[in-house]
């Protein structure tokens, strides 16, 4: 695994995978903590910054993720609840939670 770049102090790093990465055309993004203090806030901030994510990973209206997408916090825990509070320096993975193959 390639080491993740350090998250700027005070920010929340987003890592995109699968269809989300294709939609935004980049691997990572950093959101200021003041607009990304919770997963719900991350959803809203991402929808505003990357409209292509709406319908791909974010549900229409920006109220949550589409079926099959989920957040993972710091590569460890999956977090289904959008009211989850984040800490500065956290890394949020936006992934498609489907196996197969």
């Amino acid at each position: 695994m390639a080491p993740s770049p350090p998250t700027p102090t005070g920010g929340v790093q987003i890592e995109f995978f699968g269809p989300a990465r294709l939609a935004v055309g980049q691997k990572t993004a950093v959101l200021p903590y003041d607009v990304a203090g919770s997963l719900a806030a991350v959803v809203g901030a991402l929808a505003a910054r990357y409209p292509a994510l709406v319908g791909t990973a974010i549900a229409a209206g920006g109220r949550g993720l589409v079926e099959g997408c989920i957040f993972n916090l710091n590569g460890r825990d999956f977090v289904p609840h959008l009211d989850t509070q984040l800490q500065p320096g956290d890394t949020v993975l936006l992934i498609t939670a489907a196996g197969g193959g």
Binding site: M1, F17, P19, G55, V66, G75, G101
Partner: peptide, 25 residues
């Protein structure tokens, strides 16, 4: 629709980077 987007766009090889990042590859 979105429920199968991963399979259409990337196919199951999309798992590689996710699994690597999660430490399950």
């Amino acid at each position: 629709g979105p429920a199968t987007a991963k399979y259409r766009q990337l196919g199951t090889p999309a798992n590689v980077l996710v699994f690597d990042r999660l430490g399950i590859l």
